[in-house]
Design a binder for these strands. Structure first.
Lengths: 246, 246
DNA sequence: GACCTCGATTGATCTGCATCAAAGCGATGC
DNA sequence: GCATCGCTTTGATGCAGATCAATCGAGGTC
């Protein structure tokens, strides 16, 4: 572990503009260090934090994918958030986690020790404003998702999920979402089921059905081609260019 | 309509602490006035705003109840938010509404013209911080709701809704949620169905079932007594004092 | 009083998805 | 090569909740 390297920089990895203090060393031992910013890497499948645990940091995803899930005592689980690069994790002002966060791919996070981050937020107004913007986006996404969960059929749910992923993929590469789209599904069938409130068997069946009907083309189990996004969005039950804000 | 009465006061009606400019006159003609704050009243059943409409104000509920809903082209609708007194409506930085907002009871709102409110937000950092807090609470509520929509049975859904309402009712009167609770259901069976992703018939049946099993007692169709909140929460599938943050 | 309306209830039947169960398939290791 | 493991697909069956339809009951109006 190298010594803290203090410097005032603009963070290039996360959407929160801030005064970074140390961007060099990767370490978990935050309590012993004076850093407020540090990186952390997780392997696929590894938990980032469990619901109820003390949460000593906030942060944002640099690369990889993580899921936010809730679980009932009997094991039923529901995904309540899908964390892609630039998404923020954690809640200033709360010190135990409310959800399980699990890395589904290799994951790099840009973390801040929570207390210094909260202090920084009070001093630096635009951080709260930026966080508010991001939180409002997440709230919109959650509400869109509620419509999917509450009122759509299994087929529409799958189409909606694929459309959401295609959309986010496109915005990452600054493409448009018209015409053909190609991407890798980084979720297992089970994760998709937890996202959509279905069983993994139903997910599998509906994907097969969409494939048979030519709405999507699969190379292998994870590589998806959508020949016509318009068509997919119709299958999702959305109006023409309608609303996914994720 | 009286002339604007400019004054710097602390708003007692809504959770956003702000410099009020005019708190006297009730009017819809905001564009012609220099007020940034004003009150607006709606009758039960009256729409506050439709999805897609220009949204010239933000505000918070002073009294009454409103619902936030999304509708698909074929008419399927999903409630995505339940607005009770102190809840905030509207999104700084966006100028068309993303949801339908409908008053379900007589409703009084404390409104701000959007542009001046946004300016105020930039000048006054604690407003963004307070809004962030409220938005994070709403996000938590939305995620709790996603678990309800995605993974709970019809009976658990109804029990969850009753528990949420009892909880909010209690917090309004600063009571605890232990033991017996009594409250009026201010939603129709249809609104409950839209909340929970069910049909109104299923809602009716499950309420009857909970009544038959002694989990709730009804006087009339709307006045609910919960003899034992603990029992209701078990029916909702929540762990003992588990998490509804609404 | 009779009549209407609007929400709620209850019943009968149907169906989409869950559940239970058995393979299939690609990657990895021996 | 074969065995194993994790993920996925496919099949058979059952049930929770949707759908269709009739009735009820509390106000309100004439």
């Amino acid at each position: 572990m190298s010594a803290p390297q203090l410097q005032a920089v603009q963070c290039a990895d996360c959407p929160i503009r801030h005064r970074a203090v140390c961007a060099k060393c990767n370490t978990d031992e935050l309590e012993t260090l004076d850093h407020i910013k540090y990186y952390r890497t997780f392997e696929a499948g590894q938990p980032v934090i469990w619901s109820g645990d003390a949460m000593s940091f906030v942060g944002s995803v640099v690369s990889g994918i993580a899921t936010l899930t809730q679980t009932m005592e009997d094991g039923r689980t529901q995904m309540v958030g899908l964390l892609l690069p630039s998404d923020f994790v954690g809640r200033p002002g709360r010190d135990t986690a409310a959800y399980n966060v699990v890395a589904t791919t290799e994951l790099v996070m840009c973390c801040f020790r929570k207390k210094p981050f909260e202090d920084m937020m009070v001093e630096t107004p635009h951080i709260a404003q930026r966080l508010l913007e991001m939180t409002l986006d997440e709230l919109d996404a959650a509400r869109e998702w509620m419509l999917v969960l509450g009122r759509k059929t299994a087929r529409e749910k799958i189409a909606s999920l694929l459309a959401i992923i295609a959309r986010r993929e496109a915005s990452l590469h600054k493409e448009t979402v018209k015409g053909e789209m190609v991407f890798d599904l980084k979720l297992t069938r089970e994760a998709m089921a937890d996202y959509l409130g279905l069983t993994l068997e139903t997910v599998s069946r509906q994907i097969s059905a969409l494939k048979k009907d030519g709405v999507i083309v699969l190379q292998g189990k994870r590589h998806v081609t959508v020949p016509d996004m318009q068509r997919l969005m119709e299958e999702a039950g959305d109006d023409s260019d309608g609303g996914f804000l994720v």
